Amino acid sequence: MLRNAVRSLLAEPRAPEPPRRVWRDWVLVGGLLTAVVLEGVFREDVAWRPAAIVIAAAVVCALLWRRTRPLTVVAAVFGLLIVINLVTLVTGNATFGLYTMICVVVLPYSLARWGSGREFLIGLAFILVALVLGIASDFNGYAEAAFGSMFLLFPATVGLAVRYRWTARHRELDQVRLREREQLARELHDTVAHHVSAIVIRAQAGRAVAATRPEAAVDALAVIEAEGTRTLAEMRAMVGLLRDDGTAALVPQPGVGDLERLARSVGDRPRVEVEVSGDLGDVGPAVGAAIYRIAQESITNAVRHARHATRIDVRLTSYDDSVRLTVRDNGEATSRNSGGYGLVGMTERATLLGGTLAAGPDPDRGWSVDVVLPRTAGGR
């Protein structure tokens, strides 16, 4: 996992957005400042006491920016440690500083957690140089040097691991959002395209006969009103689902039992015939909804694109472990993928449920859509 975390860190052009400051940082800095003052006053073996207190207090205050400016803080603090260790190494004086400055161990974590890949590499160089000079200026054996190195670098490892989990989690959430958007796009397309197509066709027919048969135009207006009402109802159901206010779960999804109603909504030109065979009682709701939506989109495409079509046949057949939906029209076959999303959405529905979909012109006449789905895909 650490290797993946390093790769993820170096591949990221920007660091994950950290909170600007949290209350824990203020509590941490307040406690450390108190410790600095107490140690500076009561500890007897402090070299250069006033300077040590001021430097320790500055290092502690710099922790407030460890989330938003990790490289700047690391460069400033460990750059200061490099200078101090160089002076100690050259002069041979006693070790400078307060024990409270051990708080710098949180900075490697902050650098790995919130810094970009470039910032991590630059900051790591500062940390390693300060570490080597610190060991050289106060060398007490290889065991202590190894332990000190692990103690300083281990927080960076923890930061990389936390960063990797955070990144993986957010990528997973992004994938979920993408799938939800695709599902919403399919629902909107299938619902709106079907009803709007019926409205347009009825409006055209009503305008054509308005002068000679006013009663037919009135009938067309009634159908337009009904289709508009259904469209609004389905749109409200989808908006309720997006709002997640608890009412969306009360709205049932359309299924195989609604195919007859779907056929009646088209009217008589072209006539839609529905034939259902086999036991469909245990078909899962996800499969039933997919069958309805695919049939709806197939009928809409036939109405819009099949020239001179007089009949659309919808056949749903049940088998032992699958169901098969076939939608055929007897019009003149034309291209049905002119920049639209209908066939794409139908294919996505079938694929997500582990099924297959084939669509294209029939050898004899018209266009056919043939889809096979598992009976209980997506749960019951």
Results as ranks from 00 to 15, higher is better:
286 A>F: 08
206 G>I: 10
178 L>V: 13
268 D>S: 05
170 H>R: 10
190 D>L: 11
138 D>P: 07
235 M>W: 03
145 A>W: 04
7 R>G: 13
317 T>S: 05
162 V>A: 10
243 R>L: 15
198 A>M: 15
6 V>E: 03
181 R>I: 14
321 D>N: 00
363 P>R: 02
26 W>H: 03
3 R>I: 15
216 A>T: 04
17 E>K: 01
173 L>R: 04
64 L>I: 08
219 D>A: 11
128 L>V: 15
219 D>W: 00
279 D>N: 04
377 A>F: 07
185 A>Y: 08
71 L>P: 13
322 S>G: 03
232 L>G: 10
346 M>H: 04
272 V>L: 07
344 V>E: 15
1 M>S: 07
300 T>R: 10
1 M>I: 12
190 D>Y: 02
355 G>C: 06
365 R>S: 10
305 H>C: 12
349 R>P: 12
321 D>Y: 00
249 A>R: 10
160 L>G: 06
359 A>L: 04
266 V>S: 11
141 G>S: 09
323 V>S: 00
349 R>D: 15
103 C>R: 01
112 A>P: 15
132 V>C: 06
318 S>P: 01
171 R>I: 15
67 R>P: 15
200 V>G: 07
288 G>E: 08
278 G>T: 11
100 T>M: 08
164 Y>C: 11
186 R>P: 07
44 E>D: 09
292 Y>I: 07
154 F>K: 00
84 I>Y: 02
214 P>W: 05
351 T>H: 07
60 V>P: 00
173 L>D: 14
282 D>K: 06
143 A>V: 14
184 L>D: 11
228 G>H: 01
98 L>D: 13
42 F>C: 06
114 W>Q: 03
204 Q>Y: 09
245 D>Q: 02
206 G>K: 00
55 I>E: 10
56 A>W: 04
132 V>T: 05
156 A>T: 04
352 L>T: 05
108 P>S: 06
299 I>L: 11
372 V>A: 01
259 L>N: 01
209 V>E: 11
38 L>R: 01
103 C>A: 13
377 A>Q: 01
13 P>V: 02
157 T>C: 14
308 H>K: 07
111 L>V: 10
136 A>T: 01
336 R>F: 08
350 A>S: 12
16 P>S: 08
105 V>C: 09
194 H>A: 12
273 E>G: 01
275 E>T: 06
3 R>E: 15
118 R>F: 11
252 P>N: 06
56 A>T: 00
5 A>P: 00
211 A>Q: 08
